[in-house]
């Protein structure tokens, strides 16, 4: 499947999901209360899994760039940046950095890289090895 067809599939799937949400909301708002509503509103790219013995959890917030990653329950500082696609080009792509991989941006959301936040979390776990995050890993970002 090429990139365009992947995007199309994602867009059509997301559109279908919105239709379902809308129809459900019209039929019965109570059906969307509690955990079901939270599940429907979650970004499909969000994740929660165990990687190399550490629990990693990621929540996307691309609109505001305030993505969240937790590793074993401790917060990792994450920043979203824009980078040029090539020298002398005005076009940019979106990438994420963390307090552990501060000079190693990971593309966030471009075509086949929709798992960028998870890759960043895994990179942080690789960096940690047998260590854990400290309170200073939750360094505030703009």
């Amino acid at each position: 499947m090429n990139d365009i067809s992947r995007r199309d599939v994602f867009r059509h799937t997301a559109t279908a999901a919105l239709i379902v949400v809308g129809a459900a909301g019209f039929a019965s708002s109570s059906a969307l209360a509690g955990p079901n509503r939270a599940a429907l509103l979650a970004d499909p790219r969000d994740f929660e899994e165990t990687y190399k013995g550490k629990k990693i959890k990621g929540e996307h917030d691309k609109d505001k760039g305030k993505h969240k990653i937790h590793i074993n329950g401790k917060k990792l500082g994450v920043v979203q940046i824009e980078l040029p696609v090539a020298p002398d080009s005005a076009a940019t792509y979106t990438a994420v950095l963390s307090t552990l991989n501060h000079f190693d941006p990971v593309p966030l959301d471009e075509g086949e890289h929709r798992d960028g936040l998870k890759k960043l979390a895994r990179l942080a776990v690789d960096q940690l090895g047998d260590q854990e995050l400290t309170a200073d890993a939750d360094h505030s970002h703009p």
Partner: peptide, 13 residues
């Protein structure tokens, strides 16, 4: 920074 890794890759490099 990345080539050295460890603390050099971090915010506290």
């Amino acid at each position: 920074h990345n080539w050295i890794g460890g603390h050099m890759a971090q915010v506290d490099s």
